[in-house]
């Protein structure tokens, strides 16, 4: 049930500080959209604003609209909890709950939404989600072992399994491979390619090759200057961005002339 995200005129503030300025874009369903740009350019903040995770920081607020299909996630009577259930997130560092087993980690979110989850149903969800995250074969014999005992790449796929067990429409990934070795990174990239059949996926990455490999659309963010807010410079088909971008700034960044 992948959904389209339509952002129009989005500004993100932390207190008085404006972190992201006036971003408008459309994120297509069943596709991977990559956000690239130098450190501190607001791409992560923007990503977190897409499922209202930025509200964890004190005094964070936004102006503008983010439509998930036909619903504004910032409408006054929308509950951020419901938004996050619909728009899942995978973080930079794998963060399985340390006190829970692999099984409990996967089922944690699904349990919240359905408190009377039967044992067989739960087993189904766990198996399905772990299959979905390409992790089932590796862990099926040790589901009751702690999730923290897995390798970094496996932990990250566990986190992805945990996110998709809630059956979200959108998956946001905040540099999901930056803490992983190349082999694990490859596994995650394969997984992303598979997941996009069913989900809308946004991925923040520092790695331009990765953006080129996994994404259909690429959005380039940059700072207007030191202390200024981050802006969306250009967004287009990934091919186009990496071969002949419209803006000079983008080209400079892509070719490594700065950034």
């Amino acid at each position: 049930m992948a959904k389209r995200i339509d952002v129009s005129g989005l500004h993100v503030y932390y207190g008085d500080f404006k972190a992201v300025e006036d971003v408008s874009m459309t994120i297509e369903p069943r596709a991977v959209t990559a956000f690239i740009g130098s450190s501190g350019c607001g791409k992560s903040t923007f990503l977190r604003a897409l499922n209202r995770m930025h509200e964890v920081a004190p005094n964070a607020r936004v102006e503008g609209k983010v439509m998930l299909d036909d619903q504004d996630i910032y409408a006054p009577d929308v509950d951020p909890v419901a938004v996050r259930r619909e728009i899942g997130m995978v973080f930079q560092r794998p963060n399985p709950f340390p006190t829970m087993s692999i099984y409990d980690n996967v089922i944690a979110g699904a349990k919240l939404n359905n408190q009377r989850l039967g044992r067989t149903e739960a087993d189904d969800i766990v198996e399905r989600s772990l299959h979905g995250a390409n992790l089932w074969e590796e862990v099926k014999d040790r589901l009751s072992k702690p999730g923290a005992g897995l390798s970094g790449g496996q932990q990250q796929r566990l986190c992805i399994a945990r996110a998709i067990a809630v059956e979200p429409a959108v998956l946001l990934m905040d540099e999901p491979c930056s803490a992983l070795d190349p082999i694990s990174t490859l596994a995650i990239e394969d997984l992303i390619a598979k997941l996009k059949e069913n989900y809308t996926i946004c991925i923040v990455t520092h790695n331009m090759q990765q953006a080129a490999r996994v994404s259909d659309q690429t959005a380039f963010f940059n700072l207007a200057g030191t202390g200024k807010p981050g802006r969306l410079i250009e967004m287009d088909e990934t091919n186009k961005i990496f071969t002949k971008p419209d803006k000079k700034e983008t080209e400079n960044y892509i070719t490594g002339r700065f950034g």
Binding site: D77, D79, R128, H131, V166
Partner: peptide, 28 residues
Amino acid sequence: MTTTTKKSSTGASGDGPAPMQRTLLTGS
């Protein structure tokens, strides 16, 4: 979602139980 039901490799929501009411507007 449209079920691209390739065995064992669909996303989590493929052939699961009836999808729950999906609206952001829970009464509040």
